[in-house]
Amino acid sequence: MALFSRLRPKNKGADAAAVSPQVREAKASRTGPLIALSSAGRPVWTPRDYAALAREGFSRNAVVYRSVRMIAEAAGSVSWLLHDGAREFDAHPLLDLLTRPNPRQSGNAFLEEVIGALMIAGNAYVEAVGLDGDVRELHALRPDRMKVVPGTDGWPSAYEYTVAGRTVRFDQVGSTPPILHLSLHNPTNDHYGFPPIEAAQVAIDIHNAAGSWAKALLDNSARPSGALVYQAREGGNLTEEQFERLKKELEEGFAGAGNAGKPLLLEGGLDWKQMGLSPQDMDFIEAKNLAAREIALAFGVPPMLLGIPGDNTYANYREASRAFWRQTVLPLVRRTASSLSAWLAPTFGERLKLSADLDAIEALSGEREALWRRVSAADFLTDDEKREALGYGARKAD
C-alpha cells in the first residue's frame, strides 16, 4: 500500500482518482511471472535436509565444525565503520543497534550466528523488530524453519516461520521489510542459497566413513579381511545348505564397518587365508587427510590453519591467515554489510554505508605496515595527501 500512496497524483480534481498509464507502469523483470507460475502465493520449502547437513557435517565432523566456527568467529570479530558519503560517524543509532542487536546477544554473537547459518544452510534470515517506525532489535532466525512465499512477480513477497506446527507470516512491506534474507549463490534454485557444506558432502561422507571404519577396526582388534578355504578330505565342497548358512552368518555377523575385524570361529575343514589390502596398505590416514583438505577447500579455509598435514600452499601460518581473511572472511563481511546497509538505511533516512574496519584486523597488520611505508616514502605527496591515501582526513586547523 505504501507504493500506491507514493504513486497517487497530487491534484484533488475530479480526475484525481484516475492515475495515468505512465504512472501505473512500474519497473519489473519480465522473467518474474515465469518464476511465479508454479509457486505464486504458496510457500516453497528449501530443497535440502538442513537437519541432516547439520548432523552429519557440523555435529559429526571436526573439520566442518572448525571451518564453520573459524569463519563465523572471524566475521563476528569485525568492527564496523559507518559512512554517509565522505562523512564518517563516530556514533550513530545504527552502530548502537549492531553493537547490541537484541537483549540476549552481543553484536559479535549475532553476526556469528548469521554467518554460521550461511555456511551450513546457504541461507540466513534476520528479523527486524520495530517500534513507532524505528528498528529497535535484530534477531537471527533458524533457516530450516523459514519458507519463502513468492509473489506474483516471482520474487519473495512474504516469509513464513514455523515452529511446532505454529506459523508466523512476515509480509515484505514497508520501507524496511521485516525480514532480510541473505543467501549464497545457487545456480539451480531461484529462492534459496547453496551452502559450502553441501558442496563438500562427498568428502564429508568419506571422512566420516573412514573414521567409523578405523574405530570399528580398533574395537575389533584390527583384524584384516581374508577368505575361508574349505579343506575337507572328502567331497572337497560344502553342501548347498552349509554354503548358504555360512554365507548368511558372514553377511549378518561380519560384514560392514560395525563388524570390521571381528574374530571368526572356524569349524572343521575351514581355513582362514588373508587376502586383500590391510588398513595400513589402504592408508586410511592419508585418505582422511585428502577428504579433510577437500572439505577445507569448499569452505575456503587453508588446511594449514586446521592442522591438516600435507599442505604446502602457503609459506607460513601468517600468509595462510592473511589469505583466509582476504579470500573468505572479508567477502562474506562485505556482502553482509552491503545487505544490512541497504535494508536498514531507509529507517534512518540517510544514505548509509557499512564497512569493515580493516585497520582493526590483526591478520592484515603486515599489509597495513607495508602500505604505510610506501605512502610515507612518497615524497611527491603532501602530508594531507598521505593521510587521505591512508584513509584519514586532513589535519584540522588549530
Rank of each mutant, 00 (worst) to 15 (best):
Y125D: 02
I115V: 07
D96F: 04
G154V: 04
P101E: 09
D90S: 13
V114I: 10
G107N: 06
E137I: 09
F110D: 07
L131H: 14
L131A: 14
R145D: 00
A117R: 15
E88A: 12
A109T: 14
P101F: 11
I115K: 11
P101A: 14
A109P: 12
G154T: 01
F89K: 07
D153G: 04
F89N: 14
D153C: 02
V149I: 12
L94G: 13
L118G: 06
G85F: 12
D90T: 13
M146T: 06
A124H: 15
V126Q: 13
L97A: 07
E113D: 03
D132A: 01
L111M: 13
P101L: 15
P150L: 02
H139T: 08
V114G: 00
A121I: 02
A91V: 05
D90M: 12
M146D: 06
A128Y: 03
M119Y: 05
E137A: 07
L94K: 01
L97G: 05
L138R: 12
N108D: 14
P103G: 06
A117K: 09
R104I: 12
E112M: 04
E113G: 02
G130E: 10
L111T: 08
I120T: 03
R87T: 10
R136L: 12
E137W: 11
W80G: 08
R136C: 11
E127W: 15
I120S: 04
V149Q: 06
A140M: 09
E127N: 14
R104E: 09
E137Y: 03
T152G: 01
L131S: 10
L94H: 05
D144G: 00
D144K: 05
V129E: 15
A128R: 12
G133S: 14
V126L: 09
P143C: 00
R100E: 14
V114W: 13
H92E: 15
L82S: 11
N123I: 00
M119E: 02
I115S: 11
L97E: 06
A124I: 08
V148H: 08
N108P: 14
R142C: 00
V149T: 13
A140T: 14
N102D: 00
D144E: 11
L95I: 01
N102I: 05
D134V: 02
T152M: 11
A124M: 03
A121M: 10
